[in-house]
C-alpha cells in the first residue's frame, strides 16, 4: 500500500471530493502504477481522508492506495497529476490506513477576518451556530485552538466524524466580529502516527 500526502491548491480546491477520487485514480493509471480493484463495480482501492469542503485549499491531504512502487513516487505522481494536486511525501504501509478515523484534528489558516479576542471566545462554554444544512450545532467542543499569525487566524478544528468545517467557522466569526471569510488553507492533518509515517 502507498500512503501519501498531497496538496489541493491552485484551482484544484474547486474539484469535488468524488471528482478528485477519479483524478487520483487516473493519475495512477497515467503513471503506470496499477491499483488493486474491488467490488462489483470494479472500483480502485483508493482511500482518502474525510472530504474537504469545496474551495478550501490544502497542503495536507492524505490518500492510501492499494498499489506498490519502488521508484521516485513523488516525481512520477506529480508528472501525472492535474494542476494543484502535488504529492509532497509518501511511504509504504502494510495495510489500509483508515484516514477519516486516524485524522482527528486539522490546522487551518483563515484569511480576511477582523481581529477579535480569541481567548475570550475560547472561554465561552458553548458556541452555537446554524450550519450549511440549517442545523443548529454547538461548535466550541470542536475547536482545539485559535491564535493569530500576522493577521491571519490559525485554527485547530475537529476532523473526521465530528468535523467542523473551517468555512462554517469563518463565516460565523465574520458575521460576529466583522471582516470576511477569505482564503482558507488546511496546513496540517494532526495525528502523531501519521506524522511519523510521512516524516
Amino acid at each position: 500500500m502507498i500512503l501519501f500526502r498531497y496538496t489541493k491548491v491552485d484551482g484544484a480546491e474547486y474539484i469535488s471530493h468524488l471528482d478528485l477520487f477519479r483524478q487520483i485514480d487516473r493519475t495512477f493509471r497515467r503513471a503506470g502504477i496499477p491499483v488493486a480493484m474491488e467490488g462489483m463495480g470494479n472500483h480502485p482501492k483508493i482511500f482518502m481522508n474525510a472530504p474537504l469542503g469545496t474551495g478550501i485549499q490544502s497542503l495536507a491531504e492524505y490518500c492510501c492506495a492499494d498499489a506498490a512502487y519502488d521508484g521516485d513516487f513523488i516525481r512520477i505522481f506529480n508528472e501525472n497529476a492535474p494542476k494543484g494536486v502535488r504529492c509532497t511525501a509518501w511511504t509504504t504501509v502494510e495495510k489500509k490506513v483508515n484516514l477519516p478515523v486516524l485524522i482527528a484534528w486539522c490546522d487551518y489558516r483563515i484569511e480576511g477576518l477582523a481581529h477579535f479576542d480569541e481567548e475570550a471566545l475560547l472561554a465561552e462554554p458553548e458556541i452555537v451556530l446554524t450550519d450549511k444544512r440549517d442545523r443548529v450545532v454547538e461548535i466550541r467542543s470542536k475547536i482545539h485552538a485559535l491564535y493569530w499569525d500576522n493577521g491571519i487566524l490559525c485554527a485547530t478544528l475537529r476532523s473526521g466524524n465530528q468535523t467542523l468545517r473551517p468555512d462554517v467557522l469563518g463565516e460565523y466569526l465574520a458575521a460576529r466580529f466583522g471582516g470576511k471569510c477569505g482564503t482558507i488553507v488546511k496546513t496540517t492533518a494532526k495525528q502523531e502516527d501519521m506524522r511519523e509515517l510521512l516524516k
Partner: peptide, 19 residues
C-alpha cells in the same frame, strides 16, 4: 473570485488546470 465560484454549482467547470 472565490465567493463567485463558491456561489455556483460545480465551480471546477470554471477553473481550468486539467491534466
Amino acid at each position: 473570485m472565490k465567493d463567485v465560484l463558491l456561489s455556483c454549482e460545480k465551480p471546477s467547470r470554471y477553473t481550468g488546470g486539467e491534466f
